[in-house]
Amino acid sequence: CHSECLGNCSQPDDPTKCVACRNFYLDGRCVETCPPPYYHFQDWRCVNFSFCQDLHHKCKNSRRQGCHQYVIHNNKCIPECPSGYTMNSSNLLCTPCLGPCPKVCHLLEGEKTIDSVTSAQELRGCTVINGSLIINIRGGNNLAAELEANLGLIEEISGYLKIRRSYALVSLSFFRKLRLIRGETLEIGNYSFYALDNQNLRQLWDWSKHNLTITQGKLFFHYNPKLCLSEIHKMEEVSGTKGRQERNDIALKTNGDQASCENELLKFSYIRTSFDKILLRWEPYWPPDFRDLLGFMLFYKEAPYQNVTEFDGQDACGSNSWTVVDIDPPLRSNDPKSQNHPGWLMRGLKPWTQYAIFVKTLVTFSDERRTYGAKSDIIYVQTDATNPSVPLDPISVSNSSSQIILKWKPPSDPNGNITHYLVFWERQAEDSELFELDYCLKGLKLPSRTWSPPFESEDSQKHNQSEYEDSAGECCSCPKTDSQILKELEESSFRKTFEDYLHNVVFVPRKT
């Protein structure tokens, strides 16, 4: 048989008469490798580009789960590009990614509803959504962080984005990388972005840091009482949809009607710091009717980097990364020049730590249904340095008659930039024990000054392991946590139920 035959053949030295091919099969003959313009397919066939392209389009058009959109890589027609490569849609070739590779997620039936953290986790790592997304989240724990972890990498949506009755959302900033909504599939009414009845939605994105392009379709905003109209108009300008909307697409009466839409800028007039305090004062603000001013709200939190936005980490279910302080308005003076500047002394802060701070007014709604208010920009203030805590785990070892090696770990709280350490030492008198000992005694162990690591005695271990207080009263049991108490109650309830079950099964009433 021919060298490319495997198993047997019907005619000697003829690659077209093989029972099976050793390498690849091409047009009725066995070959060692697939010549151009053919590609290896499933490690035994040679196919042309049209064959591989037909497989790709067949799966793409069917949208069946589990099928493969075949691509070409290293002269092979394979189910998908290997790690580190992405497909070129024009020629199906796998090309190296520039940075992290995109991950295209194809949605069944063309859309997916995100109504819980669990459903959001199914899209973790996706960068391109081939379909439409509907966000409908009523509640949950730590929602802002969970949504950002699972949806934060999405850069492109081919269909539309719909935010509907998501009472738990305060902001859409968890879509931190969303840059493009194509609108290839539109919501009824030709809408590519749809926001309806979101009672706590206050911000779409921080438009000073976020760009969003909507290729096709219109915007729809109705019944978002805490979303200011200025935020919607800003989205029109940034996304390129200005002029597409009709009169009733953006409701003037049901958007922002319960919001404090600040239209003035508060400026800080005085800032002073110490290692654990920050004193702030800002310019006074009074609405047209000074009785509408209820006070100020001061927001602050630790910020290692200057990239904080107002609604980071917030949701309507209680999660809030900001510390909020309510401040009463100052006494009002008739003389504008003698107006008191409101302020606040922030206490209990960490030394040498940068804080993000902003302040906003708290006002009631005027009778004319106009909203007044003022808010400052987010500023960054760093507390002063102070003395560091003591170095940890000092170790001293003498390696000769004239040297001592000293080692330690950095302090747990540096409280500033540590530039150097101060080492103090003092000579001590020799131990009298060394002169009084009889060095001729056998088995004498000389006193040693070398360091030995501390260890816990058996008594201390027994005390720590004991669940009861000892007789001397030195140790006591740790208080039980809520989960331990709940577990004990469940076990007790189970024992009672099981005992009742045994009584009912074992003891049967005697027939009379």
Rank of each mutant, 00 (worst) to 15 (best):
S401A: 14
L252A: 10
E246D: 12
R347Y: 11
R369V: 10
A251P: 12
F299V: 05
L406G: 01
E368C: 07
T241W: 10
D206F: 06
L178K: 00
L201A: 02
V325G: 02
E156Q: 07
G373P: 05
M235E: 00
S389I: 02
R182F: 06
E368R: 15
L392D: 05
I379N: 04
S269Q: 06
I395R: 15
E302Y: 03
W282C: 01
R332L: 04
I181L: 07
Q339V: 08
Y380S: 02
P288I: 11
K409S: 12
S166R: 00
S389V: 03
Y380A: 02
N211C: 10
W205F: 12
A145E: 13
L331D: 14
I278N: 00
S319Y: 14
D367L: 11
E283T: 13
S389A: 04
H106Y: 11
S171G: 13
S208H: 06
G243M: 05
S398T: 15
T185C: 02
L227F: 02
A195L: 10
L349T: 02
L362G: 04
T118W: 07
P391A: 07
H210I: 05
N340V: 14
Q199N: 09
N307P: 09
S239E: 01
Y194P: 01
S192F: 00
S119N: 11
Q199H: 04
T241A: 13
Q203A: 11
L123R: 01
K301C: 02
Y194R: 11
K375L: 14
L151T: 04
E283R: 14
P330T: 05
N263Y: 03
K112L: 13
S321R: 12
G373M: 02
S173C: 09
G343F: 03
K409V: 11
K234F: 08
C261F: 03
A316M: 05
D377R: 11
A149L: 07
L298E: 00
G318R: 09
Q216F: 12
I327D: 00
D367F: 05
L227A: 02
W205L: 04
S402R: 13
P287Q: 04
L279S: 07
N387L: 04
L212C: 02
G152D: 01
T383I: 00
K360C: 08
H341Y: 08
D328N: 14
S239C: 13
E156F: 04
R164M: 15
L133E: 00
P336L: 06
L294N: 11
H341F: 12
W286E: 05
N334L: 04
V308R: 04
I154L: 09
G295P: 10
Y300C: 15
K234I: 09
P411F: 02
K301M: 13
N198S: 04
K162Y: 11
S239L: 11
T215F: 09
T215P: 02
L362H: 14
W322V: 08
R179L: 07
C126A: 01
C317I: 14
K267N: 10
L252S: 14
I379H: 04
N334V: 04
K112Y: 04
M346N: 01
R138C: 02
K162A: 02
L349R: 01
L180V: 10
T113A: 09
K253D: 03
Q245F: 05
S171V: 02
N387Y: 03
T353R: 07
G131C: 01
E122L: 14
L293K: 06
D206L: 07
S260N: 02
L252D: 05
T386S: 09
P304G: 04
L229G: 03
W344S: 08
D326N: 15
I134H: 01
T371G: 05
I135V: 05
I157W: 00
K103F: 05
T386V: 09
Y300R: 04
I157Y: 00
S333R: 09
R281L: 07
L298W: 01
N263M: 04
F299M: 12
A303Y: 14
M235F: 04
W344Y: 03
L133V: 12
N142D: 10
E310H: 14
N263H: 04
L212Y: 02
S398L: 02
G343Q: 14
P394R: 05
L293V: 05
P410K: 05
Q403Y: 15
V381T: 04
S274L: 08
P342S: 04
G256Y: 06
I157T: 01
T361V: 04
P342I: 11
L266C: 03
N263P: 13
D292E: 06
I157D: 00
E231Q: 04
T113H: 14
D292M: 08
S166F: 06
